[in-house]
Amino acid sequence: MSAALLVGAMLAVTLGTALLALSQQRHWNAVMGTGSKPGNLPQRLGWLLISVSLVLTILRDGGSFGALSWPLQAGFGALLTSGALTWMPGVMKPLARWFGR
């Protein structure tokens, strides 16, 4: 249960930061090419997932540990997102297609 919550929180925060990145035209273009727009949904969903990761972290760790681990998890998720955008933006394509216009 504890491991599942940790994995869930990491997944949620990584996906959440990925969606936040996709909500920016610059990164959207890098993944989907020019000519389309991300719309509002990725940003809203991104913040939602990041909030979900906070809830999962507090459920697993409690507030005292959660206050330490959540910011670091979020930073790590954002690091994965930045790495993907830099070296293999293609891996974000399936995610972006959900919101493609």
């Binding site: 940790l6 760790d61 540990f65 330490l68 681990s69 670091l72 998890q73 930073g75 790590f76 690091l79």
Partner: peptide, 14 residues
Amino acid sequence: HWPLRWLYFIGGLG
């Protein structure tokens, strides 16, 4: 808290 210890380590390297 081992996952947190490793996150600290990554944060420290960062």
